[in-house]
Amino acid sequence: MSATTELLLSLLVIIGALFTFIGSLGLARLEDFYTRLHGPTKATTLGVGSLLIASAIYFSINGEGLSLHEVLVTLFLFITAPISAHLLAKAALHQRLASLVPLPKAAGSEDDQESPGSHPS
């Protein structure tokens, strides 16, 4: 492994770990649920993505041949993270969790009366 790739790998690993840490810091530090939601869904996703890119480069150089299956986890996380964030926000609104700002009127509460026919999928 040349010095340049090692430097690149170290940078990617540090940046990834730093973003993972910042995401969790946001989770612990911010004041209401809706703002806390932002930390893990954004910072952590990029952090893990960057770590996985580092892993792909490392195993492509040191293993036998190109190693791209890390891309799969990155892709999967980028697809699922927004879905879990959306569902969590929806659940919090449904429970009328207190927020720093006034909650919007009646959003989330109509889920109970959702008619069976309203979901074509």
Partner: peptide, 18 residues
């Protein structure tokens, strides 16, 4: 669109109206 909003500028999509 909802997924994109969740991934980008400091926003999370919370609810789609009925």
């Amino acid at each position: 669109l909802a997924n994109t909003i969740c991934l980008t500028p400091g926003t999370v999509s919370a609810h789609l109206s009925e």
